[in-house]
């Protein structure tokens, strides 16, 4: 394993036995993944793609049928490797009879912290996720969002070098999601590596250095965001005024929106955009706005996975939820 790698998987394969006759189902197939130390890595994929399965392998909850998963060069199945990991599962569910403080004390103890450290860091962690006021409330009374925040707190109480978060923004309101983004950025600033899975693409675009796209158990793309998203201009939106009708006909009737003397039209492709600019100018029209759009992560995700949105009017966030 090269130095500086927080996570490396080589040919990782996971199988599940399902049904009465224990039929084998492949959860992950030949997964080769590398995450550098100190980066924020977004692990993307629709539901059922194998994101949680990968994470379970990394934290030693399930064993691969083939291949290996390494954490800082150590076999992920060993307790030594896991001592460097903080993990928050999807929809975390904790012991309901404990309070927030007691839960963090329990996990701190399992991570080998002394009593004094557990008290100090427990209070710090609760404060960091905004749960100080609920510290002595039993977890049975926590809302979903509060449990999600507590999941983050327990994941970082021992200040791990690697933090693995499974769908950390799931079920949170916009403020909560923004808080979690800031929490992840803070972690990186303190030197941790963050690996998180999600299907909310805007979160990935906002904070990730590198991404991996998983589909049906296979890693279909990985790298920097710029390498996943096509650099070509896919669409240009032009707003113009005083454009003669014959020029508009050339631009394509259906794409045109007219508002008095002002028209808005969309042009697919880079070459056609230049031609449209020239046509409007030559016809005596005035260009008010000319916005070129590159492919966004959502479009790249659709292109890579071959998935199609079920409704054309969906916003990026809704679109991601619809995929699932």
């Amino acid at each position: 394993m090269p130095p500086g790698q927080a996570i490396q998987t080589v040919g990782l394969r996971v199988e599940y036995k399902v049904g009465l006759f224990k039929k084998r189902r492949v959860g992950l197939e030949a997964l080769d993944l590398a995450v550098q130390e100190g980066e924020i890595f977004g692990y993307l994929g629709p539901n059922g793609a194998g994101k949680t399965t990968t994470i379970k392998c990394l934290v030693g909850v399930i064993e691969p049928a083939a291949g290996a998963a390494m954490i800082f060069g150590r076999d992920a199945r060993t307790p030594d490797a896991r001592s460097a990991v903080g993990y928050s599962p999807e929809n975390p569910y904790f012991y309901e009879y404990l309070t927030g403080t007691e839960l963090l004390d329990f996990y701190g103890r399992l991570s080998g912290l002394s009593r004094a450290e557990r008290i100090r860091r427990g209070a710090e962690a609760l404060d960091k996720v905004g749960l100080s006021r609920a510290a002595d409330v039993r977890l049975g009374l926590y809302s979903k969002g509060m449990r999600q925040r507590l999941g983050l707190a327990q994941a970082v109480i021992h200040r791990p070098r690697l933090v693995i978060l499974d769908e950390p923004m799931s079920g949170l309101d916009p403020v909560g999601r923004s808080d979690v983004r800031e929490f992840i950025r803070d972690l990186r600033r303190s030197g941790s590596t963050i690996f998180f899975s999600t299907h909310i693409l805007s979160d990935v675009e906002a904070i990730c250095d590198h991404v991996g796209v998983l589909h049906e158990g296979r890693l279909i793309a990985r790298g920097e965001l710029s390498s996943i998203v096509s650099p070509e201009i896919v669409r240009t939106t032009v707003v113009a005024a005083d454009v003669p009708d014959d020029a508009l006909a050339w631009l394509g009737g259906e794409a045109v929106h007219r508002d008095g003397v002002q028209v808005t039209f969309h042009i697919e492709g880079e070459a056609d955009a230049a031609q449209a600019f020239k046509t409007v100018s030559d016809a005596g029209g005035r260009i008010l706005s000319f916005v070129a759009q590159k492919e966004d992560l959502e479009s790249a995700f659709m292109r890579l996975t071959g998935l199609k949105p079920s409704g054309a009017s969906s916003s990026p966030v809704h679109m991601a939820e619809e995929i699932s």
Partner: peptide, 14 residues
Amino acid sequence: ERHTIYTVIARPVG
């Protein structure tokens, strides 16, 4: 069933 074991096993716990 409740997945509480995940966060325990994910620690250095055999």
